[in-house]
Design a protein around this nucleic acid. Structure first.
Length: 323
RNA sequence: GGUAUCGUAGCUCAGUCGGUAGAGCAAUGGACUGAAAAUCCAUGUGUCGCUGGUUCGAUCCCGGCCGAUACCA
């Protein structure tokens, strides 16, 4: 029986250096990269999402970078289905694939799967949204208590998004949201190893702050201004853009907007780490190509071209830089 | 060199008529199943500049020292 293919998950907080490490690892393995970055999906956003450069995209075949436009409806379930389809193709050519990006839910959807649910009705979503905005959170809480008392007793009742999501399923299907939530990992026909990159917090913060300054120097203000009229889109409810929209409104200065981008990026990085830490299967290492390769070898990831990896041992020339 | 003011959390500051202190911002921890760079919850982290004195007790009152700022020379 042939060895199952291997998915190498490579993640970590924003700005830690995932992109360049992933590219080097993929080059050594001669495999493709699948991105799990929910904002690099949008082809219009490049500066503010620190998307891979053209050179980087040329160095290794990337998937799920710039495949969407800002107005395209998209969600994690679609992503899961599309990635699984793609992986079945990629694994025919190569025993391994690198999955990299910082969107924890999207990564999880690939390696653990989501409970299957019917598509939601945008009209119901809109109607619930209006009810929440007009009548407040108490109103949608009461509705949830009626339609799904089980979920009501466990959900974070202060979080409108949680409540609204459950309600749209209840109303769209006529069954309680909790009846769909099995929380069982979906079997996959590939193995997964999970590697998290991290740095001392102060160093990560320095990298974040410096990267934001670089984005501004690279023209982030113009990039954001270009999409000011589309600011209502979810794709633009994004660190680096929403703060600049406030600047264009005149409600804050450019200087304050830049500081807020840095602060919100630091907080985003912290939330990412909270998410990843919960999964004890992650192996943590520095954003160094050699450390990551040693890590993959140490996990005895046979079948994933460890012959190629071993050739790279003691060849420490490439270290991660940009994310 | 002289005079004055100030020195409290990472930052900006409040406060204690003497009983070891609290706001904003920053930060930290957590949650998360179809918006996830989203959304939500929780948390004060401190030799109160140093050193003597008075006092049962000093971050607070007094002296000295150090540092900062302003003005005068």
């Amino acid at each position: 029986m042939p060895q199952a293919p291997l998915l190498i998950v490579l993640t970590g907080p924003t700005a830690v250096g995932k992109t360049s490490v992933a590219i080097e690892v993929a080059r050594h393995l001669q495999c493709d990269i699948v991105s799990a970055d929910s904002r690099q999906f949008y082809r219009e956003l490049s500066i503010g999402t620190a998307a891979p450069t053209d050179d980087q995209l040329r160095a290794v075949k990337h998937h799920f970078v710039g495949q969407l436009s800002l107005e395209d409806p998209y969600d994690v379930s679609k992503y899961e289905a599309e990635v699984l389809d793609l992986l079945s193709v990629l694994f025919k050519k190569n025993p391994c694939v690198v999955l990299t990006g910082g969107s924890g839910l999207y990564l999880q959807a690939v390696y653990a799967g989501m409970d299957s649910l019917p598509d939601s009705d945008p009209r119901i979503r809109q109607q619930l949204r209006e009810q929440f905005e007009n009548e407040g959170i108490a109103s949608i809480r009461q509705l949830l208590r009626k339609l799904d008392p089980d979920y009501y007793s466990t959900v974070d009742l202060a979080n409108p998004n949680r409540i609204l999501r459950a309600l749209e399923v209840c109303m769209g299907t006529g069954a309680p949201f909790s009846s769909f939530r099995k929380s069982n990992p979906v079997p996959r026909n590939f193995n997964t190893i999970k590697i998290g990159l991290d740095l001392p917090r102060a160093e990560l913060h320095n990298r974040i702050n410096a990267r934001v300054d670089q984005m501004i120097a690279d023209g982030l203000v113009d990039e954001a201004r270009h999409f000011y009229s589309l600011r209502h889109l979810n794709a633009l409810n994004t660190v680096g853009y929403k703060e600049l929209f406030d600047f264009f409104d005149g409600s804050i200065s450019l200087e304050v907007a830049i500081e807020k981008i840095k602060t919100n990026t630091r907080r985003y990085a912290r939330r990412q780490l909270t998410w990843f830490r919960k999964d004890k299967e992650f192996i943590w290492c520095q954003p160094s190509v050699n450390e990551v390769i040693e890590c993959i070898i140490s996990l005895e990831a046979d079948g994933c071209r460890s012959d190629l990896l071993n050739e790279q041992r003691g060849n420490p020339e490439t270290e991660g830089q940009a994310d």
